[in-house]
Computed example of a mutant assay.
Amino acid sequence: MDGYQRDGETEAERLDRNWDELLQELRVTQTGVQILTGFLLTLPIQPAFQDISDFERSAYIAAISTSILATCLLITPVAMHRWLFRQQRKATLVHVAHRVAISGLFILAAAVVSVMALTFSLVLDQTAGVVAACLGVVLFVAAWVLLPLRLRHRLTRPEGP
Rank of each mutant, 00 (worst) to 15 (best):
Y60I: 05
Q87H: 12
P47N: 15
D2C: 11
R82Q: 13
A62T: 00
E56F: 00
A117P: 06
L155T: 13
E56N: 11
R82Y: 15
T76P: 04
A91E: 15
L40N: 05
L84T: 12
S53L: 08
V113P: 00
L108D: 05
T31Y: 13
V141W: 09
W83F: 14
L84K: 06
P148M: 08
Q5H: 13
F106K: 02
V130E: 12
L40F: 02
L74Y: 04
D2A: 11
L139Y: 15
Y4T: 14
S67L: 00
D125P: 03
Q87L: 10
V33H: 05
G32M: 12
L93K: 04
V28M: 12
Q50E: 15
V138W: 08
V96R: 01
G129E: 06
Q34M: 14
V112Y: 02
W19P: 05
L108T: 03
T71G: 10
L26C: 07
L26F: 10
A79R: 08
H98P: 05
A101Q: 01
V28P: 03
L43K: 05
L146T: 14
D2V: 11
D7K: 09
S67Q: 07
D7T: 11
I102N: 03
Y4S: 14
L15E: 05
V33I: 15
P47E: 15
V112F: 08
A142F: 14
Q30S: 09
Q46V: 15
E11D: 14
L15N: 02
W19C: 03
L22M: 12
T37V: 06
A142E: 10
L74P: 00
A70V: 04
E159I: 09
M80V: 07
A48Y: 14
V138R: 08
L93F: 03
F39L: 15
S114Y: 03
I102K: 02
K90H: 14
A62K: 05
S58A: 14
T66Q: 06
L22E: 01
V113E: 03
V94C: 05
S114P: 02
A101V: 07
A132N: 01
A79M: 07
A143M: 13
L124K: 14
L26N: 01
S58R: 09
L69T: 00
L43V: 04
V130P: 02
L73W: 03
G8P: 07
V141N: 04
A133L: 02
T119L: 07
L41R: 03
F120M: 13
A48G: 15
A142K: 08
A101N: 00
V115R: 00
A70M: 00
L151I: 14
M116G: 13
S53P: 07
E13M: 08
T42Q: 09
G38N: 01
P161R: 10
A110G: 05
L69A: 11
R82H: 13
S121F: 06
T31M: 14
T31G: 15
L41H: 01
A117G: 10
L40Q: 00
V141D: 02
D16R: 09
G32Y: 12
R154H: 15
A12F: 03
